[in-house]
């Protein structure tokens, strides 16, 4: 465990908690893509199949449970909470994410570290996490609504990606045979898509700020 990865895990967790608290506090999920949040929950559920079989460390086990619980809590809030669900932009959040799930699964069947259930689902979760932001990106381009996507959320999400890339560079130079090609390549694609999301976030934020200025 290195400080970059620990900080990356912490900023990732904080970004999820910021979103959950924002939705719960404002009782609104306007501008947030339920599909992206469902994909994130699926990422954690398929990545941590080894939760009860492989014990890496207490930290690892606790964090896996927290990631699964917090991502499911967001999906539950957006689907079931009577007040929150009313503010969901159902007719704007129309990205066909089932095709993305299928494409990632086929890719995981072809490209994995070992052809076992656990490894295929692990690779699937890595590919899925890379593209999970797409529905949110499309919704943001359509709605331009950043009320619930606070700047802090975007900041911590970016910090998570940046710190993980530094972690991989650090491990590459300090560990004799650190090879996580699937995670690294997919992580770079994910960071590229996040950069695109941040760009559209900035455009929306700028537009909204202009709109709010006293005429």
């Amino acid at each position: 465990m290195n400080i970059f990865r620990f900080a990356g895990d912490m900023t990732h967790l904080i970004s999820i908690l910021i979103l959950l608290l924002k939705i719960y506090a404002t009782k609104s999920c306007a501008g947030i893509s339920l599909k992206t949040q469902e994909l994130y929950a699926l990422v954690f559920l398929t990545r941590y199949l080894d939760l009860f079989t492989d014990y890496v460390s207490l930290y690892n086990t606790v964090m896996k449970i927290v990631f699964i619980a917090s991502s499911l809590a967001i999906v539950w809030c957006m689907r079931r909470h009577p007040l929150v669900r009313r503010s969901y932009d159902k007719d704007l959040d129309t990205f066909r994410h089932q095709y993305v799930v299928l494409a990632c699964f086929v890719l995981a069947l072809l490209l994995n570290e070992k052809f076992t259930i656990q490894e295929v689902f692990w690779a699937f979760s890595i590919y899925l996490e890379a593209v999970a932001i797409l529905p949110q990106l499309v919704l943001l381009q359509r709605s331009g609504n950043v009320d619930n996507l606070t700047g802090q959320y975007v900041l911590f999400l970016g910090a998570y990606r940046g710190l993980y890339i530094i972690n991989w560079i650090y491990r590459y130079f300090t560990e004799d045979h650190f090879t996580r090609w699937i995670a690294c390549v997919s992580g770079l694609v994910q960071t590229g898509l996040y950069a695109d999301f941040f760009y559209y976030y900035y455009l929306s934020w700028k537009t909204n700020t202009k709109l709010k200025l006293p005429a």
Binding site: M1, H12, D50, D54, V56, F67, W122, E175, A183
Partner: peptide, 10 residues
């Protein structure tokens, strides 16, 4: 060796 295979990243 084995311990490297274990997925230690979240």
């Amino acid at each position: 060796n084995k311990d490297d295979d274990v997925k230690d990243e979240l």
